[in-house]
């Protein structure tokens, strides 16, 4: 049994790289995902994931599957869309989700159009679903660097992010911290989506952020507790997804996201904090 569990990762370098890469993405993406779910921005994240497509596509046209090119392209496109959506939301009566949806749709259409100029479905598949099994040393360094920057920035922004979530008016009075928290968080989302995009592709990148966070909320009440549960859930989903993909010859990105999805569904039913089982089969009420 132990050999079945560990064999792919002891024998194959590409599986070791894939595991290290996915765990690096996970360790920074999960905390960001927790705040996305708490700020009700899960679908905003999904929109952002689509928004990085044209940047990656244009970079691909210019430089092929170059690591730096795709990263910079995705990063630029994501930041431009986030900044434009934020600016429109603050300057007009449109809510941020509507302005973001508008920009991401323009962005997505542009991305698909640019990719179609190459007339190759294989390339489109790579951009949309990533290729975690092809991570080389340079890609691993990139993922580790993004992860480090993300964790450090998250540590700096942690307090204003919590305050912004509970009472948005509290920080807005003093101006700068509120904007720092808002745009800093959008930056965190974009860099983690770009990291996720290298591993899982633009369509699946959001999965590694949202699913562990959503599952974790069924096991803990406090923010610390949610983080404590979500990270191992994310790690186990990456490990299981990679193993299943190896043994059953399945695409890796969807296998990882589906593994996380299974943990989410189990948490939904069995979770001690608001899970369905507890809701439909409650214990007897307390005396006081």
């Amino acid at each position: 049994m132990a050999s079945v569990l560990f064999y792919p990762f002891t024998e194959y370098l590409f599986m070791q790289r894939a595991l290290v890469g996915s765990l690096a993405v996970c360790i920074s993406a999960v905390p960001v995902g927790i705040f996305m779910t708490l700020r009700r921005m899960s679908l905003t994240g999904d929109a952002m994931a689509h928004a990085i497509l044209p940047g990656a596509a244009i970079a691909y046209l210019l430089s092929g599957l170059s690591l730096i090119g795709l990263t910079m392209g995705g990063l630029l496109a994501g930041l431009v869309v986030a900044a434009l959506a934020g600016w429109v939301a603050r300057s007009t009566h449109l809510k941020e989700d509507t302005s973001l949806a508008s920009f991401y749709l323009i962005s997505l259409a542009l991305g698909v159009l640019v990719i179609s100029l190459k007339r190759s479905n294989v390339d489109l598949f790579h951009v949309l679903f990533g290729n975690i099994l092809a991570l080389d040393n340079a890609a691993l360094w990139l993922l580790a660097s993004i992860s480090t920057v993300s964790l450090l920035l998250m540590a700096v922004l942690y307090r204003p992010l919590v305050i912004e979530c509970v009472d948005p008016s509290f920080l807005r009075r003093t101006g700068k911290a509120s904007s720092a928290a808002h745009f800093g968080f959008l930056f965190l989302m974009v860099i983690n989506l770009v990291a996720g995009f290298h591993a899982l592709g633009t369509l699946m990148a959001i999965g590694i952020m949202i699913l562990p966070a959503a599952a974790g909320r069924f096991w803990a009440k406090t923010l610390d507790g949610i983080l404590l549960f979500s990270l191992p859930i994310g790690f186990s989903g990456c490990y299981t997804g990679l193993s299943i993909s190896f043994y059953f010859d399945l695409p890796t990105g969807p296998a990882i996201v589906l593994s996380l999805g299974v943990v989410y569904l189990l948490s939904l039913f069995l979770g001690v904090n608001g899970g369905l089982l507890k809701k439909y089969y409650p214990k007897r009420h307390l005396a006081g």
Binding site: L38, V162, V166, D167, S169, A220, T222, L223, G225, I226
Partner: peptide
């Protein structure tokens, strides 16, 4: 104006 569902 508060988000009372936030885990704090």
């Amino acid at each position: 104006q508060l988000d009372k569902s936030f885990p704090i």
